[in-house]
C-alpha cells in the first residue's frame, strides 16, 4: 500500500535577482522590485513529498525522525538566515525560487535514502509557489 507523505519545513533567507551581464535598466525591467541592490527576503516553506509502502511494523512510509534529521542538517542549516545570492551554490546563477526548488530537490534526491522522493514544493510567499518533480 503506497502512501505519499508530505512534510513542511520553514526557513528565512534573502536574495537579489540580478543578471551581471545585463544593464541596470534591463535588470529592473526583468526583475522589478526583486532587483533592489540591497536584496530582500522571504519566509520560505519547503514541502517535501516522499512515497513508499507503509511498513507493517511501524505504520510508516519513513521515520519522521530521519526525514527531520536530514532536512534540518541539509536544508534548514544550509539555507536559514542566509543570503542566497552569496552562496557558492548559486555562483553565476540567479537564485530564483525555481532554481532553489531544483537545488533542494537534488539535495533530497542524492542524499535521502529512506523513501522515494516524489516532489519538492516551495512557497516563497502565500501567493507564489513552485514545484519540481525531477
Amino acid at each position: 500500500m503506497k502512501v505519499h507523505l508530505t512534510r513542511r519545513y520553514h526557513f528565512a533567507a534573502s536574495h537579489r535577482l540580478h543578471l551581471t551581464d545585463c544593464s541596470d535598466d534591463e535588470n529592473r525591467a526583468i526583475y522589478g522590485k526583486c532587483n533592489n541592490p540591497h536584496g530582500h527576503g522571504h519566509n520560505y516553506s519547503v514541502e517535501v513529498t516522499v512515497s513508499g509502502p507503509v511498513d507493517a511494523a511501524t505504520g510508516m512510509v519513513c521515520n519522521l525522525a530521519d526525514l527531520d534529521g536530514f532536512s534540518n542538517k541539509e536544508i534548514i542549516e544550509r539555507f536559514d538566515h542566509t543570503n542566497l545570492s552569496m552562496m557558492p551554490l548559486f555562483e553565476g546563477k540567479v537564485p530564483t525560487t525555481e532554481r532553489l526548488c531544483v537545488e533542494i530537490y537534488d539535495i533530497y534526491n542524492k542524499g535521502f535514502k529512506h523513501a522515494h522522493l516524489e516532489k519538492v514544493r516551495i512557497e516563497e510567499t502565500a501567493k507564489n509557489s513552485f514545484e519540481y518533480t525531477g
Binding site: 500500500m1 502512501v3 505519499h4 508530505t6 512534510r7 513542511r8 512510509v61
Partner: peptide, 12 residues
C-alpha cells in the same frame, strides 16, 4: 498538523 500530511490514492 499544518506541517505533516499523508496522501493515499488506493491500490494503484
Amino acid at each position: 498538523n499544518a506541517d505533516l500530511f499523508a496522501d493515499y490514492y488506493g491500490e494503484e
